[in-house]
Nucleic acid binder design. Structure first.
Lengths: 107, 107
DNA sequence: ATTTAATATCGTAATATTGCAATAATACAA
DNA sequence: TTGTATTATTGCAATATTACGATATTAAAT
């Protein structure tokens, strides 16, 4: 097979896995870090900074965007990619809730 | 290609991605949740609970174990898999450090 | 020593992910 | 309108992941 059997898990569990997946590639972690460190940045900067080809960066940005983690308009020429800090915080809290819940009752 | 270019990222970034990868599959999130909810549990319980074949569970447990998240001996017949709460907490703090650091300076 | 029960490993098929070259689309400037 | 610069999309090759049947290993019980 090879595909995850998403339907056999609860929504909460799938949500955690989906969130984790965004951070499960170093390029995306690096991109998020870089975006947050810049006042505003455009994709070409990222390409130079990270060291991957432009289409590859664009693909990773799409994943990050689909997680709701990008702010600003992003079509056309010179574009401002910004970290959606609210969503970023929300994700952090979501993860912490899972961690705290899981920690609570153990041998 | 298809392989992550691990060598072009900092250790910190690769570490975050490696941690996230553990949680990036719902089966592993579910296994961790189940393990933590039981006083002690054996793999066969997990197989019944999660609904994947025994080899598949075993494979996921290996990933979890390699992340240092399992306590107890795990060879032979009846085995007690326990969540390594210390390591679990350590990972939580590691992620929070990354999140807080990334949040701090943004537009 | 044999059986039994539980977990690990191997081999393999199916799907997902990653990465990039080529190309398209978009926005702006001249 | 015609470049020019920037980002998105497409198509494809390579690698990784997921899942499971078959089999091996392990530990305990009989």
């Amino acid at each position: 097979m090879g595909a995850s059997k998403v339907d056999i898990y609860s929504d909460q569990i799938n949500a955690i896995a989906a969130i984790a997946k965004v951070f499960a590639h170093p390029a995306r972690v690096a991109i998020l870090k870089y975006i947050s460190s810049q006042e505003s940045c455009i994709c070409n900067d990222i390409v130079d900074k990270i060291g991957l080809a432009q289409p590859t960066i664009s693909q990773h940005l799409k994943v990050i965007n689909e997680a709701g983690l990008l702010n600003g308009s992003f079509e056309g020429k010179s574009i401002c990619y910004c970290l959606n800090v609210d969503r970023f915080q929300e994700i952090q809290e979501h993860l912490n809730a899972y961690f705290n819940q899981t920690k609570s009752n153990c041998c």
